[in-house]
Design a binder for these strands. Structure first.
Lengths: 229, 229
DNA sequence: CGAGGAAAGATTGTTGAACAATCTTTGATT
DNA sequence: AATCAAAGATTGTTCAACAATCTTTCCTCG
């Protein structure tokens, strides 16, 4: 239980304006980094003390992160870091399969050079073996795709969904490298886009997302069977 | 200022479990009904007293509705019912132009009979002059379209966006009847879908959304010019 | 008479303590 | 060992207080 406290070194300062939002962002970061593992219980009293805020303010942050599906709130039981299951993965890909191809096909602010730059960075990271940076670039790629939609709300939804994806990966620490062989697939998407074949790019992306989902689901199924034994 | 209190007759009972969420839903309903007009200031003290909850609980509801963009929070100034402007309308249609056609074209749970039923109801409401019910059916139609995506998060986003749309209409009480001539356009969409022409349906919907946006923006522009004089 | 600005008043942001309701653990009993 | 009640801990909610900030009032000065 004291792991919680060690995981929160309080690097930043309290901004004294909108403390609730600040607490939310701290927790968001800690969860994204994997320092708070899926399933962990977040005790109000301990956390409030560790963060140096009141229980009320902490609760405001819980409300925000609960809406983002990063935290799971069980009434009278407490809040936990969400640990997404197979249904959640299906939901995540249902979202992505809609908005990412739509942005590629119809997005009014498609930025092909920006995508090229990200692919380049991903390739460099992959070549130098920095899988952390590579996964990061991969995420940036898909965020940039949705940015083409020109909608801040869709972009925010995509950010949320990618945060949930990170939770999925953190939930299975023995994950094989799902990201690296998507670098070249993303590159081929950029090729299609540069040629102006937006319909084909959207179609291809749908295919990639389909296979990614089935791969993930298969691995998750094995994982859960392993847990059961 | 006492208008606020009169607008909140407290029909329902407090459920004593998750009061914050209950307060949020009460305010959501009041705003959707137009009893709390865009731009109104919601004073914490008055509202908390009127609703019979503490300021802290009310604040939790404010956090939720602020994330839904139904309330605008200005630090140290207070919270106001959002009054969407032209940029917000553009954002709304940027979202709709992505997710609605995507759901029509690719949604795995497209329910054409359900859409037919809604169109039928809309026609009946239009014929009997109940524009209230007709606007409601129109909204249902677009919610059902997004339901085809099979994603709860996309559906929630659509519900949020439609709530913002209602705010736009409430902001201009002199709105002409934007809805009624879309009943037949929705019907023609259903015709295309029944014929299995999902691509064409998506394309057509994009067109409808484009014209709806430009009409709305034009009217809003006039409205704002009228306000300025 | 009007503009500027300081002081008073009101509102928001945040905290701490308190209490009821609910869950969890403990321990006694059978 | 299983059952159940009491004790303990945690969450849900409220209240009261205070600092920070905004708004209004009113006074002074040009």
């Amino acid at each position: 239980m004291n792991e919680l406290l060690r995981a929160l070194p309080l690097d930043e300062e309290a901004t004294h304006a909108h403390t609730g939002a600040w607490v939310a962002s701290v927790l968001r970061t800690r969860i994204a980094e994997g320092r708070l593992r899926p399933g962990s219980k977040l005790s109000e009293q301990s956390l409030a003390q560790a963060l140096g805020v009141s229980r009320n303010t902490l609760r405001e942050a819980f409300t925000v992160l609960g809406n983002e599906l990063i935290l799971t709130r069980i009434p009278n039981r407490g809040v936990f870091v969400a640990s997404p299951g197979m249904d959640d993965v299906r939901e995540i890909y249902a979202v992505r399969r809609m908005i990412e191809p739509a942005a590629l096909q119809w997005g009014p602010e498609l930025n092909v050079p920006g995508l090229e730059r990200i692919v380049k960075r991903a390739r460099a990271a992959l070549a130098s073996g920095k899988i952390e940076a590579m996964a990061d670039a991969n995420q940036r790629f898909h965020e940039e795709v949705v940015r083409a939609s020109g909608s801040a709300q869709l972009q925010e939804l995509m950010t949320r969904v990618l945060a949930q994806m990170r939770l999925v990966f953190h939930a299975m620490s023995d994950a094989p490298d799902f990201h690296s062989h998507y670098v070249e697939l993303n590159a081929s998407l950029v090729d299609l886009l540069r040629a102006g074949e937006r319909d084909q790019a959207a179609q291809a992306l749908r295919g990639y997302l389909d296979t990614a989902e089935t791969e993930l689901l298969a691995h998750l199924k094995d994982r859960m069977a392993a847990d059961g034994s």
